[in-house]
Design a binder for these strands. Structure first.
Length: 239
DNA sequence: AACCAGGACGTGA
DNA sequence: TCACGTCATGGT
């Protein structure tokens, strides 16, 4: 497929998704939903990080949702919030076995507890503001050096917590692009990422919104079993 | 009762 | 490098 044509299709995909769903406003945050109605947090309390606890919340959410649906991940996240309010000192005082029990609903709880401790150790040495001041490449490299943080988790943190233009590629993204024959089933992570970054304007809100829309659409029509069946967008609008 | 969900790591070839 | 087994809860 010609490069120019591919770029056009990637942009067309975005406008089609945005037109259909409207802006998602990712990332979801517990701390901005009301004290009385925490239930709405799962679906409608979105926003941008305003302070350190909210940045931490996003990073821990990215870790907890690895290969896990958001219901389970956010349930664990809510339990962790109740104990620590995502205050760094409170989090660091938890022992690993306490952490395991708190985050159990997210699954893989023994691994993820270790991952969280590793992440906390990292941001103790190198503060959040310090990470944010680094270039994208440096910050990404540093995050990837932490055990438990792979390319997708790193890019989630970079994009939503540290506000850097790093496109997030997840299972839904590769599935949807595969369905559109824009990539093959063996296109690597960085390669898929480059397709997006070469196609769309380098704007933070666009990167954030595009990934959010892909997840929204993926949840509805690109589960492993569906794989595009009854998709109202991709089938009709010859993308 | 299997199968799946917004991955990443360790291992062996 | 890369394919493959492993990690685990909660919903369908």
């Amino acid at each position: 497929m010609p490069r120019k044509n591919r770029q056009h299709r990637v942009n067309l995909l975005y406008t089609s998704l945005l037109d259909y769903y409207g802006p998602r406003g990712w990332w979801p945050l517990i701390s901005i939903s009301s004290d009385t109605d925490r239930s709405g947090y799962h679906v409608k309390s979105y926003g941008y990080p305003q302070n350190e606890p909210q940045q931490i919340e996003i990073c821990l959410g990215a870790l907890l949702t690895q290969n896990t649906n958001w219901e389970n991940a956010s349930s664990a996240l809510l339990r962790l919030w109740e104990v620590t309010r995502f205050d760094l000192n409170s989090l660091e005082q938890l022992h690993v076995h306490q952490l395991e029990q708190i985050i159990k609903p997210a699954g893989y709880f023994r691994q993820k507890a270790i991952y969280i401790v590793e992440f906390l150790n990292f941001i103790r040495q190198k503060s959040l503001v310090e990470i944010e001041k680094n270039s994208l490449k440096e910050a990404r490299y540093a995050l990837l050096s932490i055990k438990g943080i792979g390319p997708e988790t790193a890019d989630c943190m970079l994009l939503y917590a540290f506000r850097k233009c790093s496109f997030v590629v997840d299972a839904y993204t590769t599935r949807i692009l595969g369905y559109l024959n824009i990539i093959s089933n063996q296109t690597g992570y960085e390669e898929v990422q480059k397709i997006f970054e070469d196609s769309i304007p380098q704007e933070l809100s666009l990167y954030q919104e595009y990934h959010a829309l892909l997840v929204e659409h993926g949840k509805r029509f690109f589960s492993k079993k569906q794989y595009g069946q009854n998709d109202p967008i991709l089938n009709n609008q010859n993308i």
